[in-house]
């Protein structure tokens, strides 16, 4: 098999073509969105929602309803329960999130492993890009359009708030609303992407692209574009690897993304202590003078 065959072979199969289209669409939008997910430190909430929506996915699968609807319902319920549990002042928000999400995940597994349930738990957990339906592709396409428009419209408030929340407020931006809008967008993106990449692996496409490119780009727009391009490339590499090596498609895509993140982060790796030291001043900034008594 020559190099051209290596490239063209998967394209001859309808299944692989659809898988490539799915990972490309998800890569474009989630790769761009990942810059803000990482910038607003939402990786843990994103992971929690991705796991917490499992019962919704399972119920949709049981009912034969579109998975994306189940995922949306699952995200909404998980988010509401996390918000409710976090109101209990006796426990901190992270603990509340962990308890709720583990409970939801357990409930999802319980439902999926019941005797009358179709045996699709593996697909729901690890994704099955090779099994995407026309409806999945349409949902991913709609996400690219709607999510892209939302990201374009929110670009300046997102940047101003991430850079300096109090300053943003003095510019007439409501930081809480900006963060809520980002969370909503993230929830919808999760619900769509989870049908292709699964509850456990979807986080890769929402976090890894930003980790790979963030230290190598000079503006939010450049980081989003580079993240989107990298996510599409890693997605395609994953599908090709799956085709030629016979590996699981969803896991191959996730591993390609994480590998890209590792390579991207490696070039600029700094031990945490060094990062903490320079956080107040930045690496290229002269050290701050010690505070002197005012005379």
């Amino acid at each position: 098999m020559d190099a051209l065959d290596l490239l063209l072979d998967p394209l001859r199969s309808g299944i692989d073509r659809r898988a490539l289209a799915e990972v490309a669409l998800l890569g474009v939008i989630c790769g761009g969105l990942s810059f803000w997910v990482v910038g607003y430190r939402l990786a843990y909430p994103a992971e929690s929602l991705a796991h917490g929506l499992l019962p919704g996915l399972v119920l949709a699968s049981l009912a034969g309803a579109p998975l994306v609807l189940g995922a949306l319902g699952g995200v909404a319920v998980a988010a509401a329960l996390v918000a409710l549990a976090a109101r209990d002042e006796r426990i901190d928000a992270d603990t509340a999130t962990a308890v709720v999400v583990t409970g939801m995940f357990g409930l999802g597994a319980l439902l999926a492993l019941a005797p009358e349930t179709p045996a699709r738990l593996g697909e729901l957990l690890f994704g099955d890009p090779l099994g995407v339906t026309d409806a999945d592709l349409a949902a991913a396409g709609a996400l690219v359009v709607v999510g892209g428009l939302a990201l374009a419209a929110l670009h300046r408030p997102l940047a101003a708030t991430a850079f300096d929340p109090v300053g943003a407020r003095s510019l007439g931006i409501a930081p809480a609303r900006v963060e809520l809008a980002l969370l909503l967008l993230l929830s919808v993106a999760l619900a769509v992407a989870v049908t292709g990449l699964g509850s456990l692996l979807v986080l890769a496409v929402l976090v890894a692209p930003a980790v790979a490119v963030r230290r190598h780009t000079s503006s939010p727009f450049a980081a989003m574009t580079a993240g989107a391009g990298l996510a599409v490339a890693a997605g395609a590499i994953g599908i090709y690897a799956s085709h030629h090596l016979g590996t699981a498609a969803g896991a191959s895509v996730a591993l390609a993304l994480v590998l890209a993140a590792a390579v991207g982060a490696l070039g600029t790796f700094r031990p945490a202590a060094a990062a903490r030291r320079s956080r107040a001043g930045g690496s290229a900034i002269p050290p701050r003078r010690p505070p002197s008594p005012g005379l």
């Binding site: 910038g39 940047a159 991430a162 850079f163 300096d164 109090v166 300053g167 407020r169 003095s170 963030r214 780009t217 000079s218 503006s219 939010p220 450049a222 980081a223 956080r279 107040a280 001043g281 930045g282 900034i285 701050r288």
Partner: peptide, 14 residues
């Protein structure tokens, strides 16, 4: 509002 500059995100690419 003009913040103390180390309260802004110095690692933010702007």
């Amino acid at each position: 509002y003009v913040a103390q500059t180390d309260r802004t995100r110095l690692d933010f690419p702007v």
